[in-house]
Amino acid sequence: MNLVRRLSLYLLAAWVALTLNFILPRAMPGDPAQALYARFQGRLDPEALGALRLTLGISDAPMFEQYMSYLGQLARGELGTSLVYFPAPVGEVIGVGLGWTLFLAGGALIVAFALGSGLGAWAAWRRGGWTDTLLPPLLSFLGAFPYFWLAMAAAWFFGVQLGWFPVRHAYGPEVTPGWNLDFAASAVRHALLPGATMVVASLGGWMLTMRNTMVGVLGDEPVRFGLARGLSPRRLFVDYALRLALLPSLTSFGMALGFVLSGALLTEMVFGYPGQGMLLLQAVRGQDYPLLQGLFLTITLAVLGANAVVDVLVVALDPRARS
């Protein structure tokens, strides 16, 4: 029963999101042909506007009809043809960005979550130690910088001045994408600097959350009772305290995971990384409805999916949630 209720809630949320997804791009002024024409700034003959409308097949059909055909296409898994990248299908365009975003933003999130939570737990365990006194203010300080500035500074200093890292692209021009070591090495080298800036910017949040929960959990009666009964501190820390303290962080981790697919827009802009964020930017600029819809669809489904997974995980970790 519970499951059915939850599932229908997810379905309702999905429908609302898909409908908004349809309405929002169409509420923008002008139409895609006009937007494309304007991009050429007079280098295109005025007559081309008519040709553009014909090419893009801009529909004058009533909104309801367009809506029904939109839902029908989605049901068949068709996302339409991108306008900016005409005539490439939206699925193909998104496919390119999706992989890189998952790799960079997903990787950075996992590293930040694992490292931040670990440091936070350690800081709570060794309260008053250097991890507890020095790191939180330092990380909060770094996290408080405007991210754009932080990324630019990192790109300039480590990339341009010191030349330690490449400052654009997901891999170098000299390697061929595929399952080979050269490519993997190049991809990792290119992800290190942008990934590091993302980790640095979010580490403080994860650490503080974990530390604060942990401090609370460690002060709880069951933990003190376990200590009194002679459980080894190590066992107590890992098996009991950590498991409980992880719950709030895990929920935010799920949320963050869902939003990974929206792409780290600023990171991708600064480091010229070919992910979802850059696609989103170009889709908005070119009023590329089909691409926008496709991107929002993947983001919506990812957020809903990640939430569902977190729901399941929380139940597994926390016996209290099972009833």
Partner: peptide
């Protein structure tokens, strides 16, 4: 200025694609 290339060599397209 493109964040990712899409393979299109149709010289007759007016879309800039």
């Amino acid at each position: 200025q493109q964040s990712a290339w899409v393979r299109n060599f149709n010289p007759l397209l007016s879309t800039g694609g």
